[in-house]
Computed example of a mutant assay.
Amino acid sequence: MGQHILITGGAGFIGSHLADELLRAGHRVRALDSLLPQVHGAAGEAGRRPEYLHADVELQVGDVRDPAAVRRALDGVDAVFHLAAAVGVGQSMYEIAQYTDVNNMGTAVLLEAIVARGRTAPLQRLVVASSMSLYGEGLYRAPDGALVTDVERTREQLVAGDWEPRDAQGRPLEPLPTPETKPPSLASVYALSKYDQERMCLMVGRAYGIPTVALRFFNVFGTRQALSNPYTGVLAIFASRYLNDRAPMVFEDGLQQRDFVSVYDVARACRLALEAPDADGQVFNVGSGRRYSIREIAERMASALGKGYVAPEITGRYRVGDIRHCVADVARARDVLGYAPAVPLEDGLVELAEWLEGQTAADRVAEASAELAARGLTV
């Protein structure tokens, strides 16, 4: 018999796909979601249930910072996936109070409510969505073979357009897959808040005997992404530009490398984290383990959408809080969870392009870029 599972942020991009995955596995699913207009657009403004949310999902509209709403959402559930969060590196650098309130305080409110259930209604598992952003730069190897975990590009270097991380002698470093053992290097308020979410959940879980797992998502892409949110995933941002026949804006020289993982793989990893007996107390990367440059991603997106005539705009600017390279080492997730990424980027882009044909997107990228520039967050 399946479990009764709560997903905070369950009406969003990843949450709704996770709900589908859990329903297929025979679980009952409840979603707590504030239906934020920045994420859900007109539906969020109207407080309307997203059309893509499975009919069998019980949706409770509420804020994760509201203790009463959280207590109602927790009533009778066996396990919790905590996905609710304000998302976006750039916006977090000026909406500091908002990001800290939603991500840090929201997590604290949820944990207090879980603890208050006590031993009379113990939670069987808590899975928290963390982020690759907390690594800052990924793992590198120096020319002498030494591993380098504390890479930081200087402002002077970036102003000069010298994008690649270097050692003390000025020699370029080689990017490597980043394991969970790499120490955090927090380059944005968003990254700090995600690290706090992860640490709070694991700390409280350990103290109260609540089996807890943290999943560090890399760059997730797929259908149902918020196309009108200029601070969401890069593929969704590029799609919103292409849908309006505008060139996507690519920072630096476009050769920075990222790990793009299908939302279907992420949803499956979440389910495995619920089921794996040895996952308690651990942190896992959830990515594809493959590296792609941002310029390549823009070009592949254009091709999938039949917009090859729209070349990406390579800005030659950098954004405060951005990093150069970070790709997932998924060995621990493979060994403990049985996770293996199954959706190739090529297949995921084809499906995404088909879904995008029926979508409209309000392109707010220029507005967001102007906001960052006005605050001195792009150079």
Rank of each mutant, 00 (worst) to 15 (best):
M93D: 07
V39Y: 10
V327Q: 02
F13V: 01
G76L: 08
S34G: 11
A333G: 12
E275Q: 12
C270K: 00
N104T: 13
G138F: 07
Y140I: 11
W163P: 03
M249K: 11
L372F: 12
G44L: 00
Y264I: 06
Q257G: 12
D75W: 12
V128W: 06
N285P: 02
A353Y: 00
S16P: 03
G10I: 01
G338M: 04
V283H: 00
T120C: 09
R117P: 04
R119V: 13
P50R: 06
D78T: 12
V365L: 15
V379Y: 15
E252A: 15
G289P: 01
R317H: 07
G10H: 02
L32W: 02
L83N: 08
N285A: 09
V330P: 02
V151H: 07
I237T: 14
A113V: 05
P344S: 09
T107N: 07
D20M: 07
P67Q: 08
R155N: 11
I7Y: 05
P143E: 05
A85V: 07
R334N: 06
E164C: 09
V250R: 00
Q124M: 10
P183A: 12
V330H: 00
T154V: 11
L352A: 03
F238N: 09
Q38D: 14
E95D: 15
E313C: 10
Y242D: 03
P143G: 12
N104P: 02
A214E: 10
R295P: 01
Q169V: 07
R206Y: 07
T360R: 15
D162M: 13
G90A: 15
A55T: 13
T154G: 14
V87H: 03
L32V: 08
A269W: 01
G376I: 09
E357W: 05
M93F: 01
L243G: 13
G338W: 04
P122Y: 08
P211E: 10
A236W: 00
P175D: 11
I14W: 05
S92E: 01
A68S: 13
E275M: 10
R153H: 05
R72V: 11
A276D: 11
F81A: 13
A374P: 02
Y140E: 08
Q169N: 15
G376H: 09
G338D: 05
H325Q: 10
H27N: 13
S303M: 08
L345H: 02
V330R: 03
A19Q: 08
S240L: 05
Y99A: 05
T178H: 05
L22P: 07
D63E: 14
V204L: 12
S133E: 14
G205M: 12
A121C: 08
A279C: 06
V330Q: 06
Q38C: 08
P177V: 04
L139Q: 06
Q282C: 08
G47F: 03
L272F: 04
A191V: 05
L22W: 15
V365P: 01
G88V: 08
